[in-house]
């Protein structure tokens, strides 16, 4: 029976995120939140593996209390356990500290065979956490998976690596990093939503994973954000006006002026 850990993250709905025009910061309260898209592919991978080889899936997420919403969503997809890793002192952790917190929580949860993460989160886009968890546990991290089989404690995987298709064997445990190229995420059934949505969630705090406050959050993170600015290198912004056809004509003239169209 496979013990599968899936790391997921709650992210702001990027399309709907709005910026305070005066302060230049993200208006956090107004933001709709969701499961990071790649992480749904991670859940899908776990479900497929469980269907084929049997097992138990534990979804973990680090975040503020409202991050439990995405664990409920994970329940609806059919994961067995949901763990929220939440402590005020984790706030502001950079990739490294996030990786460390997740890794320590995984240690706390006991043995596992497979960890699955999304390739990257749409809010931070660092794409580092999977690698750092794999480094913490000294696990091979496999991406761009085309096909996977589990045989006698090993994973036999076909993957794309650079410009090559490879068939490889890796002894478990292993870390798989997946995104939308890997699989197609199912839509959860209504019965599953009804039955599992309110399943109990386990919460782990700093006291559970060990350590002291100064190791975590902004205090513990080696990187410091010293400035945010809106990113504008303004240009001329010459408005091309008129009817649609007139706009097309003017635009074609501009292209000729810039020597881009030459007839």
């Amino acid at each position: 029976m496979l013990k599968i850990i899936v790391c997921i993250k709650q992210v702001p709905h990027t399309d709907k995120a709005s910026i305070d025009p005066k302060k230049g910061t993200l208006i956090r309260d107004s933001v709709e939140r969701m499961i990071n898209p790649d992480d749904l592919n991670a859940i899908e991978m776990a479900l497929t593996l469980r269907e084929r080889f049997g097992g138990e899936i534990t979804c973990i997420t680090m975040g503020p209390p409202h991050a439990e919403d995405i664990l409920r969503e994970a329940f609806a997809y059919g994961v067995d356990r949901g763990v929220l890793i939440s402590d005020p002192c984790f706030a502001g952790s950079d990739s490294l500290i996030t990786s460390m917190v997740l890794s320590r929580a995984i240690v706390k949860l006991g043995t596992f065979n497979i960890i699955i993460t999304g390739v990257e989160a749409i809010d931070g886009n660092t794409g580092s956490v999977g690698y750092q968890i794999s480094e913490f546990f000294k696990l091979p991290l496999i991406t761009k998976i085309h096909k996977i089989d589990i045989l006698d404690g090993s994973a036999v995987i076909e993957r794309l690596y650079g410009h090559e298709y490879q068939q490889i064997r890796v002894d478990l445990p292993v870390l798989l990093s997946v995104n939308k190229e890997t699989n197609r995420v199912r839509i959860p059934a209504l019965a599953a939503i009804n039955a599992y949505f309110d399943n109990p969630i386990v919460t782990l705090t700093m006291a559970d994973i060990g350590g002291s406050e100064k190791e975590f959050g902004i205090k513990g993170s080696p990187t410091i954000v010293i400035n945010y600015e809106s990113f504008l290198q303004k240009r001329g912004q010459e408005r091309i006006s008129g009817s649609t056809q007139e706009k097309v004509e003017t635009f074609v003239k501009k292209l000729k002026k810039h020597n881009i169209l030459r007839y």
Partner: peptide, 26 residues
């Protein structure tokens, strides 16, 4: 497969056994 044909039917029949407001949402 999504239980849309048995929204309020009991689980024993493979339904979703949902409440009526959920039914209306669907």
């Amino acid at each position: 497969e999504l239980n849309i044909w048995g929204i309020q039917a009991p689980k024993s029949l493979g339904g979703a056994e949902l409440d009526s407001v959920s039914y209306c949402i669907i």
